[in-house]
């Protein structure tokens, strides 16, 4: 573990501050494409400000697990963000094998969220929790296949190098495989962030919800933490996609950070376009999509093994 660089922290701060913009951009893209005006891009900031000033109401069936869930969700995501080389050079925290820690932190956040949902004792939330972990069990192998491809491409076991300068060095040789990994990660982004082909963030229809139903009983600051966590998760996966597809090690620090923020914006617009042009998949078809994403990543691995 080396010295923490200021540029890495500056990049992290920039991403944290702009993360709540991303859902706003998605909504704006959707409303533009469907000919509506849509909510302001800054809507999530207003929502968070409103929610943080509210009080919370806890059901008597809930225990400390329910109260801890939002904090754990946000904390795990913040920690996971520390492992990403957001300035295109090195992450604030990096060591060999930190990709496992990264995936583990994401899983821990999901585990806390699911436990919080189950803790309410509502069968409705239990259903959402069950769906969430079912799809996660398909998404995680795909994520690891993507990581394996990146490890094979760069020969490094740290996310900081897998997405940093070594990746930029191998890009000309392994462009095809890395494009496949990028595509696979984008599908995972849609799945992990409960976006349209998998889940619909706009609906509150009981038969279709996954993420929205788990957080149904959270309110006030708790809900704010979860929504902030959702925006941050979108930014983290967006940073993975941008990190793989746009190697930024050659750019200056300011340019690299700016490129990342622009890239995140583009990813958000793409998510909005996907949400506008396709319908949510039937629940039984979602694993098929995720296995397809895993097949893409596996194809990349085979290409790199050659």
């Amino acid at each position: 573990m080396g010295l923490v660089s200021w540029t890495a922290l500056a990049a992290l701060a920039a991403v944290l501050l702009t993360a709540p913009l991303l859902p706003g951009i998605v909504v704006r893209t959707k409303s533009f494409l469907t000919g509506r005006r849509g909510a302001p891009v800054l809507q999530l900031y207003y929502d968070l400000w409103k929610l943080f000033r509210k009080g919370t109401v806890y059901s008597t069936t809930t225990t400390w697990v329910f109260r801890a869930a939002p904090v754990v969700v946000l904390a795990t995501l913040l920690t996971a963000a520390l492992f990403l080389p957001l300035d295109g050079r090195a992450a604030p925290v990096h060591f060999a094998g930190d990709l496992l820690a990264f995936a583990g932190l994401l899983a821990l956040g999901r585990f806390a969220l699911v436990l919080g949902g189950l803790d309410t004792g509502s069968s409705f939330e239990g259903m959402g929790a069950s769906r969430e972990v079912t799809f996660a069990s398909f998404a995680e192998p795909a994520l690891f296949l993507c990581f394996i491809a990146l490890v094979l491409a760069t020969g490094d076991l740290s996310l900081s190098d897998m997405l940093g300068a070594p990746l930029a060095a191998v890009w000309p040789r392994a462009a095809a495989a890395l494009t496949l990994v990028g595509a696979s990660l984008f599908v995972l982004l849609l799945a992990e962030n409960s976006r349209v082909p998998v889940d619909d963030p706009a609906t509150h229809l009981e038969l279709t919800m996954i993420h929205e139903v788990i957080v149904l009983d959270h309110g006030g600051p708790d809900l704010a933490l979860i929504q902030l966590g959702g925006a941050l998760k979108l930014a983290i996966f967006g940073a993975l996609v941008v990190g793989v597809l746009v190697p930024r090690a050659g750019l200056g620090v300011a340019a690299a950070i700016a490129a990342l923020l622009v890239g995140l914006g583009v990813v958000a617009v793409l998510v909005g376009v996907v949400e506008s042009v396709m319908a949510r998949l039937r629940l039984t078809r979602v694993p098929q999509l995720l296995v397809g994403a895993a097949a893409l990543a596996l194809f990349a691995v085979i290409l790199l093994l050659r």
Partner: peptide, 17 residues
Amino acid sequence: GYIASLLLGAVALALAF
């Protein structure tokens, strides 16, 4: 099934290489 055929396809791809 679709998932099984995708996995079979991935195996076929690996075998082909």
